[in-house]
Computed example of a mutant assay.
Amino acid sequence: MFAVYAAEPNRDDPLASLRVGDRPDPVAPDGWVKVAVRAASLNMHDLWTLRGVGIKPDQFPMILGCDGAGVLEDGTEVVLHSVIGDPSWSGEETLDPRRTLLTEKHQGTFADHVVVPARNALPKPAGLSFAEGACMGTAWLTAYRMLFVKSGLRPGQTMLVQGASGGVSTALIQLGRAAGFRVWVTGRSEEKRALATSLGAHAVFESGARLPERVDAVFETVGKATWSHSMKALKPGGIVVISGATSGDASAAELQRLFFLQLRVVGSTMGTREELADLMAFCDLNDLKPQIGTELPFEEAEKGFQAMLDGETAGKIVFTR
């Protein structure tokens, strides 16, 4: 079958490992289902896979793609939940020490077909296209959990999103606006700030700019480049929710500010199957559509990878069949 895959790990030149070609068609074991992929979205995790982060060398070649949307063999249209837990685990899957994502142990969604546990294929709302559904399972689910499960914010409070144009950031803007929060956003360029405004941000600022007042919560996916600004932006007792560090680990934790102002720092990773179902219901009720910045055929996947590597995003990058 056709697939976009990583041939081997390459830490210094990840795109040199990217291949577009044939891979074996998967067979679904007992309790799993085979999905004909119609669309799949690109995530930073796919670049990490190309670099060999979180995957052993003997697991290559690996079909890329953490999430997607498609059709079961009986015709049911589905959105995929990419967190695959250990069968013996009975708690929340994001806390399962043996959990994996697609592309870490199991082949991913950038292919004609993918196999997943039956519980990981959720019915796609009719109001979402396949391309829009393909954005739900990673970026939008991560944003939903950060905002509604981890932050403790109440409608009317002020949230700051660091970074205006990535998949998680654009989802946070749209979800926050729909939920009744005052949404502030920072962005590196006028173009990225304009995108945030078009998605519903109440105010936008240059990266690192002094804010008119401190905020109740900061949502972090950037890390080192924005961490100090995030800590300075919080009200006493405020919270920063972090789900990524694309610019690297923070060089200083700013512990004096942390304890003196009684700030809270909370980590957040992906989300549960139930949260994904709730997210899709919330989007359906509020007529929310993911911001898709670039849509490409799978055959042109390298263009999407290069755009993500260069930081030239304006929402999600989606590949379609």
Rank of each mutant, 00 (worst) to 15 (best):
P290H: 08
G293T: 05
P155H: 03
D287M: 10
A143F: 10
V161P: 04
R145D: 09
F260C: 14
G156H: 02
K316G: 12
A301K: 01
T221K: 06
K124V: 08
T138K: 11
E299V: 13
E254T: 09
R210E: 15
T94S: 09
S268R: 02
A40D: 01
H229N: 09
Q291D: 01
R264H: 11
D30F: 15
I239P: 07
F130N: 09
D278N: 15
D287N: 15
V168M: 03
S169P: 05
A121L: 01
G176A: 10
D278H: 13
V161I: 15
G187W: 02
H113Q: 13
D86P: 03
G248C: 03
G133L: 07
K105D: 13
Q262D: 15
G70V: 12
G208L: 07
C283Q: 04
T221Q: 12
R273E: 14
T246K: 05
E190R: 15
P212V: 06
S207Y: 08
N43R: 13
G65T: 11
D112G: 13
A164Y: 07
W32D: 13
P87Y: 06
L285T: 15
G187M: 03
L172P: 02
D249V: 14
L255D: 08
L175H: 02
H113R: 13
L18G: 00
F148P: 04
E8P: 00
G152D: 03
S251I: 14
G54W: 06
T49Y: 01
A134C: 02
R99P: 07
V78C: 02
L47Y: 00
R321P: 07
G68S: 05
G108P: 00
I239E: 11
G156N: 04
G91T: 14
A277Q: 06
Q157D: 05
N286R: 14
H81F: 13
V222T: 11
T158L: 11
V114E: 10
H106Q: 10
E8V: 01
F282L: 06
L211D: 08
G166A: 13
L261I: 02
S88W: 07
A233V: 06
G152V: 08
A171K: 05
M1C: 09
A6P: 00
V4Q: 00
L80Y: 02
F60E: 05
R154T: 15
A201R: 12
A203Q: 10
E312P: 02
P155Y: 03
E213Y: 07
F181M: 10
V83K: 01
S207T: 14
L211K: 07
V35N: 08
Y5G: 01
V161Y: 05
G133I: 09
R38L: 07
K224F: 10
A143S: 12
V53C: 06
T158E: 13
T109Y: 08
G156W: 05
V240R: 14
G127E: 10
F148Y: 09
L296N: 09
A36Q: 10
L102C: 04
A209M: 02
E213T: 12
T186P: 03
G187T: 06
V185E: 01
T320E: 03
A126C: 11
Q59F: 15
D13W: 00
P61D: 03
T320D: 04
T138V: 15
L80K: 02
L261D: 13
K192P: 05
